[in-house]
Design a protein around this nucleic acid. Structure first.
Length: 465
RNA sequence: GGUCCGUUCGUCUAGUCAGGUUAGGACGUCAGGUUUUCAUCCUGGUAACAGGGGUUCGAAUCCCCUACGGACUACCA
């Protein structure tokens, strides 16, 4: 890069709700930028018109707002490198694709998707892998096999075409990854990837490289699923004769049980959220739960995600965002995927909950009480919350621990009644009730002393259970 | 199938780069203690270096092979 400035970006596609793996990727980018005094950018990669989902972009923005992750530049915020939405940068990409054609690094291809899938299935049938590469492109319809005139004629006639990268024949691409170290791949196993689609839009590969370059991105920190396309990207930077950013590929978030990438289905199946915020699918109307709605605190949520794949090397486990920023380092990110553990997630939330003030918790609890038709004095709610917060992981669990403060019990624990309720219990309860009513200065200390004295007096001993 | 990446308790992980630890912590779980309940808290237990070969006095750590897992293999990102 032409400066030492650290600039990183998070570049989601607005194709649905943001997965927590995406949130973690963004978080690591954010921490890296803040730690190094750099800038964090939000770029929307909406080059696939067919997968656009209304509301997804807004969802992404709202998610980060809830988490407390702030961008320095990007959609809705602006900045000196805008626009930050690829659909608004559309005009720019074709020139770069053409530049590659002129340099002999790319070519026009006229194969239709149908033709290609036909060829692929033919290869499949004989158990061979079709690779659109230096060998195969000689047998297909493109500006390499057609004459210059034929090519121009086809284009002039409006024949749909794509622009493909001309993958070198037999070269070893050397790459470096900040997390994995050296990686090398031979180009002979790589495809002539499409850079520019017949609908006039660039593919991810082209748009991503062009924008990262134009936006002066210094470090590309993204999910491991991108590692296989790193050679292409590196070759693309070389083809443009651009200086490359540093790359870091983050390990994946895995299912809690079994193996594989964490998906929406796992959340539904195991009963925990996979998305930061609740999401209602605009098409099907299906609702997916969110961390926010399930009662997770944003700071707990961030802490959980941060520890899935990274640790500071000390025994500290609870962090504020500022502490994470201070201690984060990309070198300490793990190589292997992490299984998400809902039980530990709940524990983290508990850790944050008990540090919240009674007031804050009461404010969150009050709407739940109102929902149940209970109007209680805020000071009273606070006292109750203070009494029971140690025993819950989430605000909504407060009700089960404290309902008797707000209403008369509707039923008794049958087992306890059967076991404990004796002939004289009624009399004893009334007796202790009178004792409690008789306490003038009602504090926990006074109550304890008085009731213990009453126990002595009544000569009641604990019945071992 | 091919390419690439990975592999320490059930889970998150420390330790690997600079070879020598009773392989540490946390979650979970189990037991005990405190609290005349429960929860908190405290103490203790449980449980791992994927396998096999090397190199070395000595390997979780370095090298090789195997196995297993994952990602990618679209005119999706």
């Amino acid at each position: 890069m032409n400066s030492n400035e650290i600039r990183v970006r998070f570049a989601p596609s607005p194709t649905g709700p943001l997965h927590i793996g995406g949130v973690r990727t963004a978080l690591y980018n954010y921490l890296f930028a803040k730690k190094n005094g750099g800038k964090f950018i939000l770029r929307i990669e909406d080059t696939d018109q067919t997968r656009f989902v209304p509301g997804a972009e807004q969802y992404i923005i709202e998610s980060f707002k809830w988490c407390g992750i702030e961008f320095d530049e990007g959609v809705t915020i602006g900045g000196n490198y805008g626009p930050y939405k690829q659909s608004e940068r559309k005009a720019l990409y074709k020139d770069y694709a053409l530049q590659l054609i002129n340099n002999g690094k790319a070519y026009y291809a006229f194969d239709t998707p149908e033709e290609l899938s036909q060829v692929r299935s033919e290869y499949e049938a004989i158990k061979k892998t079709f690779v659109y590469n230096s060998v195969e492109r000689k047998n297909l319809r493109n500006s390499l096999t057609l004459s210059e005139n034929e090519t121009q004629e086809l284009i002039a006639k409006g024949t749909p075409y794509v622009i493909r990268f001309m993958m070198p024949e037999n070269e070893v691409v050397l790459m470096n990854d900040l997390i994995r170290g050296k990686v090398e791949v031979n180009t002979s196993v790589l495809d002539d990837k499409i850079l520019f689609k017949s609908d006039g839009m660039p593919t991810y590969h082209l748009a991503n490289i062009v924008d990262d370059h134009l936006m002066n991105i210094s470090h590309v920190i993204r999910g491991e699923e991108w590692l296989p396309s790193l050679p292409l990207h590196v070759l693309l930077y070389d083809a443009f004769k651009w200086e490359k950013p540093e790359f870091a590929h983050l390990p994946l978030l895995l299912k809690p049980d079994g193996n594989g990438k964490l998906s929406k289905r796992d959340g539904d199946r195991l009963g925990f959220p996979v998305f930061p915020l609740e999401w209602k699918d605009p098409k099907t109307g299906d609702v997916s739960m969110g961390y926010r709605e399930q009662g997770y605190f944003p700071d707990a949520f961030i802490n959980i995600l941060a520890m899935l794949g990274w640790n500071p090397g000390t025994e500290q486990e609870i962090f504020t965002l500022d502490e994470l920023t201070e201690q984060f380092s990309i070198e300490r990110v793990n190589k292997s995927g992490a299984k998400f553990d809902p039980a530990k997630a709940a524990w983290y939330n508990h850790q944050f909950l008990i540090t919240k003030s009674d007031k804050e918790l009461a404010d969150k609890f009050e709407p739940l009480l109102i929902e149940k038709g209970i109007m209680a004095d805020p000071d009273f709610i606070q006292k109750v919350v203070g009494l029971v917060k140690e025993r819950v992981n989430f605000v909504h669990e407060l009700w089960n621990q404290s309902d008797f403060f707000f209403r008369r019990p509707e039923e008794y624990d049958q087992k306890a009644v059967k076991k404990r309720w004796k002939a004289d219990s009624h009399e004893q309860i009334n007796s202790v009730k009178r004792v409690i009513e008789g306490i003038n200065d009602f504090t926990s200390e006074n109550a304890e002393v008085t009731i213990k004295a009453w126990i002595e007096e009544q000569d009641l001993v604990l019945e071992k259970s």
